[in-house]
Computed example of a mutant assay.
Amino acid sequence: MACDRENGPKAFVTGYPIKHSRSPLIHGFWLKELGLAGDYHAIEVKPEDFKDFVSTLAENGLAGGNVTIPHKEAAYAASERLDEAAKAIGAVNTLWLENGKLCGGNTDAYGFAANLDSGAPGWDKADVALVLGAGGASRAIVHALLSRGFSRIAVVNRTLSRAEELSAHFGAKVSAHGWDKAEDLLAGAGLIVNTTSLGMSGHGTVEDFPLDFSKADRNTVATDIVYVPLRTPFLAKAEAAGLKTVDGLGMLLHQAVPGFERWFGVRPSVTEALRSHILEDMAKAGAL
């Protein structure tokens, strides 16, 4: 069945800037694969215009959409109803309308966990996790880890006060440390998560990543939430030390699933075909 773009639900991804988002590729792939009517496209919205934009979704014929930087906190504030993940994380990345009300959710924690379920089954049997970085993305990661039963989560950050904010927000299971403690904490961690910009394209090489994995247990899983490049210096260094690694692309793909289901009424699957579709686009853009 051909996809009827005109008569089905219309959804979006918004941010500022937004032109490099791969969300339209993901949702467009599913619409075509499932033969569903609908449309998903990118809409660039300036921060000062965001409140007006989300208040007029219904009159503009939009069923909802994804929200990315810098609008996640503004989407949280604008939502009339929040899901539990959004409440815990303090940010919204998915919007939908329900009985005329603007609802906000956060699927980043779900996407993170689902990616590890796929790439490293049993990862959540570990008891202790080490999270590198205490930026906005770290809240979703810590929420996911607590939800999966981790009893101790060490957050390491160059600015200790940022890590202390996370610890205060989530409670006693989360401890805050300066970067100088990172290597000492490696030994007891069953999972290591990089949420920092270290290792992103233009942010250094394998040799530059400031962590020696020799103290880590060889059964430890290492994952990066960055997916450009796909094999970050963090992952390359962990892999060279014999650790199991999971790249960040799957988090992007899996976090898109719940929103698609809300707007278009069918729950899609993250498949190798979808991953290949996005990798092909990344290769064309020189992002691998």
Rank of each mutant, 00 (worst) to 15 (best):
K46F: 04
A285C: 05
F53M: 06
F264W: 13
D212H: 09
A91W: 09
E33K: 02
M282Y: 10
A75M: 12
A172V: 04
V228N: 12
D212M: 01
L31T: 04
V221C: 10
E207F: 02
R231C: 10
E272G: 11
V246Y: 01
T271I: 12
L249A: 11
N66D: 04
A42Y: 00
R262M: 05
A85Y: 11
D224H: 15
L82G: 05
D184H: 07
L132V: 12
D281K: 12
D52Q: 01
A216Y: 04
S167P: 10
L274G: 07
N219C: 06
A77V: 01
K72W: 04
L132S: 08
A182M: 13
E164T: 14
S276E: 02
V266Y: 06
V257T: 10
E239K: 03
S23G: 10
A78S: 11
I278G: 04
V128D: 02
K101T: 09
A120I: 13
G35D: 00
V221H: 15
T14S: 08
A2H: 00
S55T: 02
H20D: 15
G61P: 12
A58S: 07
R262N: 00
A78C: 12
L186F: 02
N115F: 02
G90D: 14
R267G: 05
L25M: 10
L166G: 10
A78V: 08
S269T: 13
R162V: 00
A176E: 12
G15H: 13
R148C: 09
L34E: 01
P233S: 14
R218Y: 03
F50Q: 07
E33G: 02
C103N: 03
L34S: 05
K51C: 14
P229S: 01
G248Q: 09
